[in-house]
């Protein structure tokens, strides 16, 4: 996803500190979306050992659910909650009816099933909503920008960064402090042992899958006002979420967070300085990290 740049002027551009700071904020907001998306992917992989090739598809569904809910009830916040809940339930339905049958087989089959879903669903969305992009408005209280001296602070992007921080904090507390979080962490380490303790692991997997899908849907829902909501908007995001978790280390939440923030800054600054290279820079960053630290920044030894 190209970062929106306010400074796409012709000719010479002066790099003042305001512009740099501005671009940092842009990068943080973009990074926030990457973080939400990639942490969901990472949870699903860590717990279920399934590489969710349909992750971007659920991101897209989040944006469309947001659009539908807002056009029905007219409120941004109700829409946001409704979008996350509806898409998580779709995810749970998929997990319980189809994905569950493939646990215990070769790693490739669940991956391919998700891939098939990622081809199937965008076409359904095309059929229902058409090819033309949908517009989701910014909520009225977050429109425009506030000014601090010469510095422009776009409210919605600040909101994204705060939201990401809150979600990460909630996720951390959920994983560390609640009993279900503890079970999820234990099942990530050793599912057989957790099963032996008399815990219904199959239900834990459903919860974990829902959680991951919910994060993808949240990312899509909050990204909807900033990007064009089209049926294929998720395809590139799947790949970019992969890049984030490769950089951060698969299965590590901290890695997903750091990787997402790094990638946000890279995209933001490259699209300011060399717009042609903004898409390529994502993958070059990944290649560089792989050369320097093959298992990713926070990757654990042996979990490759």
């Amino acid at each position: 996803m190209p970062a929106p740049s306010y400074f796409e002027k012709e000719g010479v551009m002066e790099l003042s500190w305001e512009i740099i700071l501005m671009q940092v904020i842009m990068g943080l907001a973009l990074g926030a979306i990457y973080v939400l998306l990639a942490s969901g992917l990472s949870i699903i992989f860590g717990l279920l050992d399934v590489l969710n090739f349909a992750h971007g598809t659920f991101y897209m569904l989040g944006a469309y659910a947001m659009f539908t809910a807002i056009s029905l009830c007219g409120n941004f916040w109700v829409g946001l909650v409704a979008a996350v809940v509806i898409v998580s339930l779709i995810g749970a339905l998929f997990e319980m009816t189809l994905l569950k049958r493939l646990y215990g087989t070769d790693q490739i089959y669940p991956l391919l099933l998700c891939f098939g879903l990622g081809i199937f669903i965008p076409d359904i969305v095309k059929m229902i909503f058409g090819l033309i992009g949908k517009v989701v408005d910014y909520p009225s209280m977050l429109q425009g920008a506030s000014f601090v001296g010469n510095l422009i602070l776009p409210k919605y992007r600040i909101f994204l960064v705060v939201l990401m921080a809150l979600v990460l904090l909630a996720l951390y507390l959920f994983m560390k402090k609640t009993s279900i979080g503890m079970i999820i962490r234990a099942a990530t380490r050793d599912r057989l042992m957790v099963n032996c303790l008399g815990i219904n692991v199959s239900r834990v997997w459903t919860v974990g899958f829902m959680l991951g899908i919910g994060l993808a849907a949240l990312a899509g829902a909050v990204a909807a006002p900033m990007v064009q909501t089209i049926p294929n908007m998720g395809d590139e995001m799947t790949v970019e979420a992969f890049v984030v978790v490769v950089i951060g280390g698969l299965g590590s939440l901290g890695g997903a967070a750091l990787g997402g923030l790094i990638l946000g800054q890279v995209v933001s600054f490259v699209s300011l300085l060399a717009p042609d290279w903004s898409n390529v820079s994502i993958f070059l960053t990944m290649a560089l990290i792989l050369v320097l630290r093959p298992r990713g920044l926070f990757g654990e030894e042996g979990r490759d």
Binding site: F45, L51, Q107, I108, L111, E236, V239, F242, V243, V245, V246, L250, V280, I282, F283, L284, M286, A287, L290, P294, D304
Partner: peptide, 18 residues
């Protein structure tokens, strides 16, 4: 080459997208 399974899938997809 030393990455297994899902990791290889992601890296190869990313390089092709690049």
């Amino acid at each position: 080459v030393k990455r297994k399974g899902a990791y290889f899938a992601m890296i190869s997809l990313a390089i092709a997208q690049m």
